[in-house]
């Protein structure tokens, strides 16, 4: 217990803890729309595209996370455009865009003469090394994403459930869709520091999918998804520290454990409450 108190007194751990809570919250909230719209692939796609941005950022000496965000937005808006204007399916569009942007990054790395370890931090995530400036940016970004999601919660629910009806009611479905994809992409970039490129989409999908198993309303879905998301990030952070394990993998494994736990609990007939 005293070890825990001591741990919480370290500045680096406090920052990591705040970042984990913020990321768990944002991913849990934005993820509800991802699972309702069957867009799980967007998370993986955006994360990989942002890796292209990180690599080019390192090569050119520009902000890697800024570049990552640019590439992520490019993917999201590209997908929105393709959905609206062409007969190509969104899965295909994601597949084309993210591989192109990622290839651009990998092509760039070939010319990179710096320390390649920086790149690994982004690939697998390392929350314990988050600098204060990045944390503040992250909190501001997360605040903006959560605010947008809460303000437009009814509009986003409507386009997820019934885009045709939304159009007939007079809502600009194309614009709302682009905005929502941009919010999803931004949330993925925020979580790169915690879970890294390879596992970023997990937090976007697993906590809301777990919530979907038990939620009876959209409100319940949002609350439970946030609870599962924050729970996995915080518990994962502690376990990663205790076992000296990579933060990203530990957090994702925690959220998977919660998912399978809830699934099993639900399937056990004598434990079923409803």
């Amino acid at each position: 217990m005293s070890g825990l108190v001591e741990l919480l007194s370290y500045g680096f751990f406090q920052k990591a803890l705040v970042a984990s809570v913020v990321i768990g919250l944002v991913m849990g909230l934005v993820g509800t729309h991802v699972v309702l719209r069957n867009l799980a692939f967007i998370g993986a796609g955006v994360a990989h595209a942002s890796f292209g941005g990180i690599a080019l950022g390192l090569l050119l000496g520009w902000s890697p996370l800024g570049m990552a965000w640019g590439f992520a937005l490019l993917t999201a808006l590209g997908v929105a455009y393709v959905q609206e204007r062409t007969p190509i399916h969104e899965d295909t569009a994601i597949g084309i865009l993210f591989t192109t942007l990622m290839a651009l990054g990998i092509f760039g790395i070939g010319f990179y003469r710096g320390y390649a370890g920086d790149l690994f931090a982004y690939l697998f995530g390392n929350i314990l090394s988050i600098p204060e400036g990045e944390l503040l940016w992250g909190i501001a970004g997360a605040g903006a994403i959560v605010l947008a999601l809460l303000l437009l919660s009814k509009e986003f629910l409507l386009i997820a459930f019934d885009p045709e009806f939304a159009r007939v009611a007079g809502f600009p479905v194309g614009l709302l869709n682009a905005l929502e994809l941009a919010l999803m992409a931004s949330a993925v970039v925020l979580s790169l520091r915690l879970v890294g490129v390879i596992l970023a989409s997990a937090l976007l999908v697993i906590p809301p999918a777990t919530a979907l198993l038990v939620a009876r309303s959209f409100g319940e879905l949002q609350v439970l998804s946030v609870v599962f998301g924050v729970g996995a990030s915080v518990v994962g952070l502690f376990l990663a520290y205790v076992f000296n394990a990579p933060s990203g993998a530990t957090v994702v494994l925690c959220s998977s454990l919660i998912f399978f736990g809830v699934l099993v609990f639900q399937r056990l007939p004598h434990l079923k409450r409803r």
């Binding site: 045709e164 009806f165 939304a166 007939v168």
Partner: peptide, 28 residues
């Protein structure tokens, strides 16, 4: 204009109550 679209199977799995769906009609 009142519009009833063709039903999609995915509608069934949304965590929505009948009241929530009917209230969507008021969004506009």
């Amino acid at each position: 204009l009142g519009y009833v679209p063709q039903e999609f199977p995915r509608h069934r799995h949304f965590p929505l109550r009948v009241m929530d769906v009917v209230l969507m009609g008021r969004y506009g």
